[in-house]
């Protein structure tokens, strides 16, 4: 590496904070819904950069991949589906005044609470650092996620699986077992098809690398899984592939294998180690790797399916006559 002196990161603080606030202000004021959706995607990336500045690479990666990328795709496909919903004119002056007063009050209370925090804030850096060696993980955030706060992480992977189940249950009954079609947005442009051929091989490697490197460096199952899900969504958007059928057994297995394995190993911990979600000392690292690998797969499958939507969307997308006939059949 040539010795390049980088500018002081403090120079970035003011422009970055300013840009964040201006973009957020625009997002809250604009009357154009679709523009707001696109602006929100850019906002997610800006947030990610701000978090890199504050030394939280893991969270920044997650925000860039999930909060910016996949969320943007979700909102954009929804905007295309929901049609141009025109915003009603802003509520009247009295309503706006009372909302402004409420917001002002909330600001003051929150400011008092945040400024009242002890400085330096109490933290768990030392306990994490002193116990981190047990997990054989070099990345403290990964150690917290998979070992010290494993319950949170397990419940979160359950949330993802449940979200897919609930999402599917909103599909029309007559379409049960069909393929999700939220990403069918007309014929793809040649540029999209080109991107769909170009990116996925690299994205696959990046996703798996993010999972693997997450043990010692920023990354992990969520970041890796999100990149993999984005690649699947890109393939489906470019019509180079189709999302799996809702009735596909392998897909369902993919959704639950992460949380299920996590839960089973956690339960086994109650017997062979000291507590629920405790790992026996000799097997700690292999078990963690096993859980994280399964979780990466499940996160990728679940996120991709969340973007792909329910089997048949209610609304104007399906060409067939929807509604009345099916309504009669439904018990």
């Amino acid at each position: 590496m040539p010795d390049v002196s980088l500018p002081d990161p403090h120079w970035a603080d003011l422009p970055l904070g300013f840009a964040l606030l201006v973009l957020a202000l625009w997002l809250t004021w604009t009357q154009r819904d679709r523009a707001a959706v696109i602006g929100f995607t850019g906002y997610g990336l800006l947030v990610a950069i701000a978090w890199v500045r504050l030394g939280s690479m893991d969270v920044a990666l997650t925000e860039a991949a999930l909060g910016g990328g996949l969320m943007g795709l979700l909102l954009l496909t929804a905007a295309a589906r929901l049609g141009e919903e025109t915003d009603q004119p802003a509520p009247g002056l009295p309503a706006r005044l009372s909302i402004a007063l409420l917001c002002l009050g909330v600001t003051l209370v929150l400011a008092a609470v945040v400024l009242g925090l002890p400085s330096p804030a109490p933290n768990l850096v030392a306990p994490v650092a002193s116990h981190q060696a047990v997990t054989e993980l070099g990345n403290p955030v990964a150690a917290v996620l998979i070992a010290f706060r494993a319950v949170d992480t397990m419940l979160e992977s359950v949330v993802l699986a449940l979200a897919v189940i609930v999402l599917w249950s909103f599909g029309a009954d007559r379409a049960w077992g069909a393929r999700p079609r939220a990403l069918h947005l007309g014929p793809p442009s040649p540029a999209l098809v080109f991107l769909g051929r170009l990116l996925p091989p690299a994205g696959l490697i990046v996703g798996v690398h993010l999972f693997w490197t997450g043990a010692d460096h920023p990354g992990g199952p969520f970041q890796g899984g999100a990149v993999l899900a984005a690649m699947a969504a890109l393939l489906w958007l470019a019509r180079l592939g189709e999302p799996p059928r809702v009735s596909d057994g392998l897909t369902r297995l993919g959704i639950v294998v992460g949380p299920l394995l996590f839960l089973l190993i956690g339960l086994a911990g109650a017997v062979i180690a000291d507590a629920f979600l405790d790992y026996p000392e000799a097997l700690t690292k292999p078990l963690i790797l096993l859980i994280e690998a399964a979780k990466t797969l499940s996160v990728a499958v679940a996120l991709a399916l969340l973007v792909a939507g329910p089997p048949e969307l209610p609304g104007p997308m399906p060409p067939r006559q929807s509604g009345r006939a099916a309504k009669g059949v439904t018990p």
Partner: peptide
């Protein structure tokens, strides 16, 4: 070194926010 515990909380929060 920043505190990893809030980082883990936020990471979890982002995933839940996207699902919601």
């Amino acid at each position: 070194t920043p505190d990893p515990v809030p980082h883990a909380l936020v990471l979890t929060g982002i995933v839940v926010a996207v699902s919601a």
